[in-house]
Design a protein around this nucleic acid. Structure first.
Lengths: 193, 193
DNA sequence: CTTGGACTTGAGCAACTGATCAAGTTAAAA
DNA sequence: TTTTAACTTGATCAGTTGCTCAAGTCCAAG
């Protein structure tokens, strides 16, 4: 029937994600978004409803992107733990991934938002829980493949890796010391060898 | 000569710190501050100059408070490493300390602020560097006292502890799972026994 | 007392915020 | 060609922001 949308939804969400990730939710004005995405306010609000709803979509996009990257890293390495480590290194150092910010977008979301944006907070919390679950499944697989002692509690190992990953990404943002981060990555995986 | 200030500067800074720490820099309006501190805008600006300058003072206050708590914990424990661990536990679980937020205020500052507030970012970065240095000095003392192997690099150990501490505080905020955090605290100190 | 200057007050400014909507544009369907 | 509805545009709104400043209040010194 009518006129067809001139923008590519996925591309718009990706660009919005990069801006939100770098600048944070509050520091990103709707006008910043309009420029980054090359759309006028009316179109954005017709397509996404609100700034908050758009942010929610960028969070989902972020999760999807990260999950995809992890699968990719696991596929390239014969050993599960090496795949996980490769994923950590990519997220920390690959400029194309860090395009947004060294700090995890989910952690940034939890850090800056209060109860007024409960929906966004819950989305981020849920995504972090799911990531932990994903890590623990990989640890279980590693155990089944004999890469890792059966004695270890997969959940506990997964939590430990996630905590260190979160810490490392924040630390890297603060110091920019890549060598130190690589050393600490060794230390994080050392108990698993 | 004239009228004397009716407010207690330290108390004002402390209240402002709690609010900034909880809500973040941008989410805290000058009107929020006025209410929390019970001062009118003119007085606040006469005393501190700007929102940014007041935030800078609360950062210094935060550092001082944390440094003081660490000394206190070290004084109570005969072994240095136990003192450090007690400090971690206090910061993570003591409601009086966590009054602001589970997440470290310095990390929150780095996370939410961009280049427009370069002064605040640098202040936070510097404070984190100094904390790492402090940790490494404590590790060195522990080594001299025979609590810890001389083989270990104090800087590396200090960095590792800081990274895990940052990660744990973020993780606790996200999940609220105190038991898991205690377990992970054990894991963080395990390589040092 | 009187006085003078440190301190307090709160109305209000200019800039910016997220969001709206009537008017305009587009292209597939009739 | 006409119709129609999805889509775009940008001026504009009401609310909020950080901050100012003239007017007022207070109290120690003279």
């Amino acid at each position: 029937m009518p006129n067809i949308a001139k923008y590519d939804r996925e591309e718009v969400i990706h660009k919005a994600m990069l801006l939100f990730w770098r600048q944070g939710y509050r520091a990103t004005s709707t006008r910043d978004l309009q420029q980054a995405v090359n759309m006028r306010p009316g179109s954005i609000y017709a397509a996404f409803g609100s700034k908050e709803a758009l942010y929610a979509e960028t969070l989902q996009h972020y999760r999807q992107q990260m999950r995809h990257l992890l699968q990719q890293c696991l596929a390239k390495q014969p050993r599960k733990l090496d795949g996980l480590r490769a994923y950590f290194e990519r997220v920390l150092f690959d400029p194309e991934i860090v395009g947004g910010d060294s700090i995890c977008m989910l952690v940034k979301t939890l850090s800056e938002l209060n109860e007024d944006q409960a929906l966004l907070r819950e989305t981020a919390e849920k995504a972090l829980r799911q990531t932990e679950l994903l890590f623990s499944e990989i640890v279980e697989q590693a155990q089944r493949l004999g890469e890792l002692s059966d004695q270890l509690d997969p959940r506990r190992v997964a939590r430990g890796l996630q905590v260190q990953f979160i810490g490392l990404r924040s630390y890297l943002k603060s110091t920019g010391d890549r060598d130190a981060v690589m050393q600490l990555l060794d230390d994080a995986f050392a108990p698993l060898r």
